Measured scan of single mutants.
Amino acid sequence: PDDLEKRARELLKRGKNPDEIREYLRNAGYDQSQAEEALKRAL
Rank of each mutant, 00 (worst) to 15 (best):
P1R: 11
P1D: 13
P1H: 13
P1C: 08
P1G: 12
P1A: 13
P1F: 13
D2E: 12
D2H: 11
D2F: 12
D2K: 09
D2C: 15
D2R: 10
D2P: 10
D2Y: 11
D2M: 12
D2T: 11
D2A: 12
D3P: 08
D3G: 08
D3W: 13
D3Q: 10
D3V: 07
D3I: 09
D3E: 13
D3H: 10
L4M: 08
L4I: 13
L4A: 15
L4K: 03
L4H: 04
L4C: 05
L4N: 02
L4V: 11
E5C: 10
E5D: 11
E5Q: 08
E5A: 13
E5K: 06
E5I: 15
E5P: 05
E5M: 14
E5N: 08
E5L: 15
E5R: 05
E5F: 15
E5S: 08
E5T: 13
K6Q: 14
K6F: 12
K6G: 10
K6W: 13
K6A: 14
K6T: 12
K6E: 13
K6S: 12
K6L: 13
K6V: 11
R7V: 15
R7L: 15
R7M: 15
R7Q: 14
R7I: 15
R7T: 15
R7H: 13
R7F: 15
R7D: 08
R7E: 13
R7N: 07
A8M: 10
A8F: 05
A8P: 01
A8S: 03
A8T: 10
A8H: 01
A8N: 01
R9Q: 08
R9H: 08
R9C: 09
E10I: 06
E10Q: 08
E10M: 07
E10K: 04
E10C: 08
E10G: 04
L11S: 02
L11T: 00
L11Y: 05
L11N: 01
L11H: 03
L11W: 11
L11E: 04
L11R: 00
L12Q: 02
L12A: 04
L12N: 02
L12S: 02
L12D: 01
L12M: 05
L12Y: 06
L12C: 03
L12W: 04
K13H: 08
K13E: 12
K13R: 13
K13A: 14
K13L: 12
K13W: 07
K13Q: 11
K13G: 09
K13M: 11
R14M: 15
R14V: 12
R14I: 14
R14S: 15
R14H: 12
R14P: 01
R14Q: 15
R14D: 14
R14L: 15
R14E: 15
R14N: 14
G15N: 03
G15I: 02
G15F: 03
G15T: 02
G15L: 03
G15H: 03
G15Q: 02
G15E: 01
G15K: 02
G15V: 01
G15S: 02
G15A: 02
K16A: 13
K16H: 14
K16T: 06
K16L: 15
K16N: 08
K16W: 15
K16I: 10
N17S: 15
N17H: 14
N17W: 05
N17M: 09
N17D: 10
N17F: 06
N17Y: 06
N17G: 10
N17T: 15
N17I: 05
N17K: 13
P18D: 04
P18I: 10
P18W: 08
P18G: 05
P18H: 09
P18Q: 08
P18N: 05
P18T: 06
P18A: 12
D19L: 06
D19N: 10
D19G: 07
D19F: 06
D19T: 10
D19Q: 10
D19A: 09
D19P: 03
D19K: 08
D19V: 06
E20C: 06
E20V: 04
E20G: 02
E20W: 13
E20Y: 11
E20T: 04
E20M: 06
E20P: 00
E20N: 03
E20D: 06
E20I: 03
I21W: 01
I21C: 00
I21P: 00
I21V: 13
I21A: 03
I21E: 00
I21N: 00
I21L: 03
I21G: 00
I21F: 04
R22S: 05
R22V: 15
R22E: 04
R22K: 09
R22D: 02
R22A: 08
R22G: 03
R22Q: 05
R22T: 07
R22W: 07
R22M: 15
R22H: 05
R22F: 12
R22N: 04
E23D: 10
E23K: 06
E23P: 00
E23Q: 11
E23W: 07
E23F: 05
E23N: 07
E23T: 08
E23G: 05
E23V: 08
E23L: 08
E23S: 06
Y24C: 05
Y24R: 03
Y24D: 08
Y24I: 15
Y24K: 03
Y24A: 12
Y24P: 00
Y24E: 12
Y24W: 12
Y24H: 10
Y24M: 14
L25A: 02
L25T: 00
L25R: 00
L25P: 00
L25C: 01
L25G: 00
L25M: 09
L25S: 00
L25N: 00
R26H: 09
R26E: 07
R26D: 03
R26V: 15
R26C: 05
R26Y: 10
R26W: 07
R26M: 15
N27K: 13
N27F: 09
N27A: 14
N27L: 14
N27H: 10
N27C: 05
N27S: 12
A28Q: 13
A28D: 06
A28C: 10
A28V: 07
A28T: 04
A28R: 08
A28H: 11
A28M: 14
G29F: 02
G29C: 02
G29E: 02
G29M: 02
G29P: 01
G29N: 03
G29S: 02
G29Q: 02
Y30D: 01
Y30H: 05
Y30E: 03
Y30P: 01
Y30S: 03
Y30F: 12
Y30L: 10
Y30G: 03
Y30W: 09
D31E: 11
D31Q: 07
D31L: 08
D31I: 05
D31Y: 03
D31N: 13
D31V: 04
Q32P: 14
Q32A: 14
Q32H: 13
Q32Y: 12
Q32T: 12
Q32W: 13
Q32C: 06
Q32M: 14
Q32S: 13
Q32I: 13
Q32F: 11
S33C: 06
S33K: 14
S33H: 14
S33T: 14
S33M: 14
S33R: 13
S33Y: 14
S33E: 14
S33L: 14
S33Q: 14
Q34V: 12
Q34T: 11
Q34L: 13
Q34I: 11
Q34C: 05
Q34R: 10
Q34A: 13
Q34K: 09
A35R: 03
A35Q: 04
A35H: 01
A35K: 01
A35L: 13
A35N: 01
A35C: 08
A35G: 03
A35Y: 12
A35S: 08
A35V: 15
A35P: 00
A35M: 08
A35D: 00
E36F: 03
E36T: 05
E36N: 06
E36R: 03
E36M: 04
E36W: 04
E36Y: 04
E36P: 00
E36K: 02
E36V: 04
E37L: 09
E37P: 02
E37Y: 06
E37H: 07
E37Q: 09
E37V: 07
E37F: 04
E37C: 08
E37K: 07
E37A: 12
E37T: 07
A38G: 04
A38S: 04
A38I: 12
A38L: 07
A38K: 01
A38N: 01
A38V: 09
A38C: 04
A38H: 01
L39A: 02
L39N: 01
L39F: 02
L39P: 00
L39I: 13
L39Y: 03
L39C: 04
L39D: 00
L39S: 01
L39V: 10
L39T: 03
L39Q: 01
K40N: 12
K40A: 14
K40C: 07
K40G: 07
K40I: 12
R41P: 01
R41A: 12
R41M: 09
R41W: 08
R41I: 07
R41T: 07
R41L: 10
A42K: 01
A42W: 06
A42S: 03
A42H: 02
A42N: 02
A42L: 14
A42D: 01
A42R: 00
L43Y: 06
L43G: 05
L43T: 06
L43R: 04
L43I: 09
L43A: 06
L43E: 05
L43N: 04
L43Q: 09
L43F: 07
